[in-house]
Structure formats: C-alpha cells, structure tokens
Design a binder for these strands. Sequence first.
DNA 1: AAAAAAT
Length: 469
Amino acid sequence: MAYFSELGLAEPILRALGTKGYSDATPIQRQAIPALMEGRDLLGIAQTGTGKTAAFSLPSLHRLAADPKPRSNAGCRMLVLSPTRELAAQIAENMRGYAKYLALNIQCVFGGVPVGKQARALERGTDVLVATPGRLLDLIDQRALTLRHVEVFVLDEADQMMDLGFIHALKRVAAMLPKERQSLFFSATMPQAIADLGRQFINNPVKVEVAPQSTTAERVEQFVTFVNQAEKQALLTLSLRAGLADESIDRALVFSRTKHGADRVVRHLATAGIPAAAIHGNKSQAQRTAALGGFRQGTVRVLVATDIAARGIDVSGVSHVFNFELPNVPEQYVHRIGRTARNGADGIAVSYVAPDEKNYLRDIEKLTRVKCTPLPLPEDFQRQAARLPAPARKPGGEQQARPQGGRREGPRNDAPRRDRPRGERPEGERARSDRREGVAADGQSQQRKFRPRGPKTVGAHKSSVRRAS
DNA sequence: AAAAAAT
C-alpha cells in the first residue's frame, strides 16, 4: 500500500489530489514517481487505465514548482507529445487539475483549430506545453515557440510516437531539444524494435515495467464472436439494442478499421433507431470534439471510432468495447480494449471476427497471452437480423448525421435481406438458448450496474491479481 | 494497409 503523501510531493499537489479524493498511488505511480523526482530518464510500461498520466505529471510538476524560473518568451519548461488531439487535450486538463494550487501555466496546442490564439498564448512563454507534433512544428516554424528551454520531455504512447507516421516529426523535435534534459516515455505496449529505436531519444532510462509489456487490463473480460462480415452490422445492432435497453451497456465504444466504415456503422445504427456518433480523422475538429464530448456527457451512449480513439482516451462508464473489425496491428487491440475497465471498474470487450480475420486474432492472443472466450451468435440471430430495417443508402460524400427520427423502434419491418447473405454457421453455435443481455453472457452485465468503487486512485485501479496465462 | 498529424 502506498499513499501519495509518502512520495515527497509538494503540499499544493497533495492538496489538489486530496480535493479529488485521491490518496492511493498505483504501482506505476509508486515506482515512477521517486525515480522521476530524482531527475532520472524513464521508460514506463503499465497496463491501460493504471494512471500513467499522473505518474509523469505529478513528479514533473513538483520539480518545476520546486525550482521556479521566470518564463522565457515563446519557451516552455516541459513538453508533452501526444499522438492525437483529443488525448493532448485530456492530458492538459488532467495536468491543470494537479497544478490547481501551483503557479504554473499549462498550455495545449494541436491542429484543426485556429493557430493565432495558440501562438498568442505562448508569447510570454509557458511552463508546460502539451502538443501534437504537426501543430507544434508549425508554431516553431512561425517562431511562436522555442524548445531551447525544455527541461522535461514526455512522449506519451511512446511506441506510436516512434512509429512510421510520427518518427520524422519526432526527430525534428528531438533535434531542437537541449541535450541536457529529462526524457520520459510511457506506453502500455513497447515492441522491442521500437524500444531499440527509442534509445536515441532517451539517456540511460530507469525501466519501470509494472506488468509484462502488452498485458491487457486485468478487469476486461474478452470475448470473440465468429461472424461473417456481412452479418456484423446486424449483430452489433441487436446487441446494442438489447444492452442499451436493459442497461447492461452503459456506454459502448465501437472500433472500425476505416473512417468510411465508422460512418457506415453510424448510419446503419441510426436506421435502427440507435443514436451513435462517429469520430475519425476525416471529421472536422468541431465534429470530433462534439462527438467525444457527447460521449463523455452521456448524451450519446455509442461512439464509433477508428483507432484515433484507441489510445489514452479516458471516459468513465465505458462498459463495452466492440471490435467491429480487428486491428491488424496486435498492439492496437491492447489499447482499444483498455478504453474500458478503467479507474477500478470492470469491462467487456467483444471482437467480431470474420473468417479472414482469424490470423489477426491469433496474433493478438499470442501477444496478450490471453485467449478470448467464444461468444456464440444468439440462437434466433438469423430471424432477428431479418427483421431489422434495411440500411439507408448513402448518396455519396460525407453526410451530416441526418436526423433519422427514431421512429422505427421495433423489429416490425420485414426488410428484404438482400445484402445479408446467409452464412454457414457451425451447428454447435446454436446451443445457447438464454436471452442475450447485451452481449455479456450470463449475469455479469447485471452486476456491473452496481459496481463498487474501490479506494480512490488517480486515473487507475490498484493492481490486483496477476492474470493467469 | 490504415490511421494519425499542419494548412
């Protein structure tokens, strides 16, 4: 057992934690915070939802506050890089909470919004800057920002930041950082090849690995349903309809492999009277912010996303993650299902696996060393699917979520099933006769409504039983 | 091969 009060953090930080009711440090926090307060570089690997943001924020804020320096124009003392805008915003908001009683300025910059306001906010300098790479470099090129004074450099989701799409920008950034600095890398996954690549950006780091790399969150129950691609939409619609109605599903996050696919799923759900929002990189920033905001607020209980939402996003009440398609990079699966079972809650992940995705499943199970539990199709799936309304045809191009008017509530429309070829199904899968409660087989889904909250921790649950693998 | 990230 470890408390924040034992870790030597400054009183204003403890006070901020206290007002939120946080007292217990998680294992990653307990191990990372002392090393970071000493100024060491660090490679931190811990499961999703175990408080990595606080692990790097608290000691860094402590050090900045303990050694006050005047702000230099266009400068920052701490730089945090994130792979998505939404995650950057979330990190900055969390840090502002921790720094509530400190005289530290925290700014956040990312693309998709006007640059002028961001540039002005940096004119007199800031203590902490949270950023996505593109806008960061843009501001540097405009001379609105300099990295000359960075003391602490944080790469969140470090393996993704060093992946192909980001490595070029990262190298540019790293070249501008002072050699003398503290570097912190955090992620739940860290493939060896990427870790090797990372050595050029970090200096003799302390490695804090709370669970084996790519270990999934402990309280996610993982299921797999084998289903033909053409039948996935009907299965999702029926599962969501049942689970939302009986409240076994609080909020559901549905992952699609493509942006187009995410839009298509949302349209299908709308046709069936299930309100859902899509979030992906082809949406405007305003649409993205509204979609995630509505999901956080609970005004939309189903969010359909690409891997833009796979990492870091912390929304309470996500009871279910559906993988409408499996990711082809197995590490992404670990991050996706980590959107549930956060902050002491438990969660359910269901992956829809078409015949041509079985290799992905194999790679995922090999990486996580967890075997997903088969969840058969409901006994009367074909009959129920046949009664779903036919999907609206899209005229083409991006379509605003046209109000569908949830008129078609019941399965009263015997729509033709022309794009729903009847797939062969193993006889064994017909066995189940119980009514499906959302997707959770047997009474688990009921229990989750009354999930108890453990001792309060920051963005995390306490480590518990190590999974048997 | 897809997605993310600058305009």
